[in-house]
């Protein structure tokens, strides 16, 4: 089979992936006040990886991102559950979230919310699961 000529998509992907990653992380953190959040951020992140899959082959990507996405999904769920359990330690019902305003050195007055930790769990679970599914289906040849 002839090697396909995919110079353009390769070059574009290299740049685009960085942009998508940045955008995904931005989406994730802006979720508290603006559109975004763990689910969307996670999916955007996953779509960047999928773009890598489509451009390069799965083996290359797997070598360069040595993460077991099944474990990542499980870790995500675990984080989400543990934030819930954390509430119990403070004598609050399971999954109670809280927030506060702190004065941090560089960021000045910043809001820190436990919901973000929960959201990290959601994001990781989404990334892990979607990539697991796509890798299993795409790899089966």
């Amino acid at each position: 089979m002839k090697e396909p000529n995919d110079v353009i998509i390769r070059s574009v992907t290299k740049v685009a992936v960085v942009i998508i990653f940045t955008f995904a992380i931005n989406l994730f953190f802006s979720g508290h006040h603006y559109p975004g959040g763990g689910f969307i951020g996670g999916l955007a992140f996953a779509s960047a990886i999928i773009l890598l899959f489509l451009t390069f082959d799965i083996e290359t990507v797997r070598k360069n991102i040595p993460v077991d996405f099944k474990v990542l999904a499980a870790v995500g769920v675990l984080i989400a559950v543990l934030t819930g359990v954390g509430a119990i330690l403070f004598d609050a019902p399971f999954l109670t979230q809280t927030f506060g305003y702190f004065n941090l050195p560089i960021f000045r007055k910043t809001e820190l919310a436990t919901a973000v930790i929960f959201d990290i769990g959601v994001g990781l679970a989404v990334i892990g699961t979607s990539i697991t599914i796509i890798m299993s289906i795409g790899d089966d040849r």
């Binding site: 979720g31 508290h32 006040h33 603006y34 559109p35 975004g36 959040g37 763990g38 689910f39 999904a73 499980a74 995500g76 769920v77 989400a80 559950v81 819930g84 399971f94 999954l95 979230q97 927030f99 919310a113 919901a115 929960f118 959201d119 769990g121 959601v122 679970a125 989404v126 892990g128 699961t129």
Partner: peptide, 25 residues
């Protein structure tokens, strides 16, 4: 949180979300 949708997802209905990601996984 100023984003109501996300506040519902992670806080008000956090239980749903937790179980959803579990099902997803």
């Amino acid at each position: 949180a100023k984003n109501i949708v996300n506040a519902i997802l992670v806080d008000f209905r956090g239980f749903d979300t937790m179980l959803e990601i579990l099902v997803l996984t």
